[in-house]
């Protein structure tokens, strides 16, 4: 097994790690690379920040009572409901 990754390879594995569990080989290679590489460590942080912030923003948007369907939109939907029953 080749232990050394290039930054390009490491960045691809980091992205994959957000979607699927890594193989033990990839985990090991990535751990080793991050130990010696500040740039990829930062990239790893960037992706995790993106992920965390988006989840938080979604929660905030969902509970933001100032965001509402405006009355025209409501009227359009009511209209669609009416005509679907005929």
């Amino acid at each position: 097994m080749k232990l050394m990754l290039t930054c390009k390879q490491a960045s691809q594995i980091i992205s994959q790690s957000l979607d699927n569990p890594l193989s033990w080989q990839d985990r090991l290679r990535l751990k080793f690379h991050l130990f010696i590489c500040d740039a990829c460590t930062r990239f790893n942080q960037q992706l995790h920040l993106l992920n965390t912030v988006i989840k938080r923003i979604i929660k905030t948007t969902e509970s933001d009572n100032t965001i509402q369907l405006n009355s025209e939109a409501k009227a359009r939907i009511t209209q669609a409901i009416e005509s679907s029953s005929h």
């Binding site: 290039t6 390009k8 930062r42 990239f43 960037q46």
Partner: peptide, 15 residues
């Protein structure tokens, strides 16, 4: 984003 040998052309910045 990378040079031919797979190094970052610009290192990622702190966000």
């Amino acid at each position: 984003f990378f040079d031919k040998s797979g190094h970052w052309l610009e290192k990622p910045q702190f966000l």
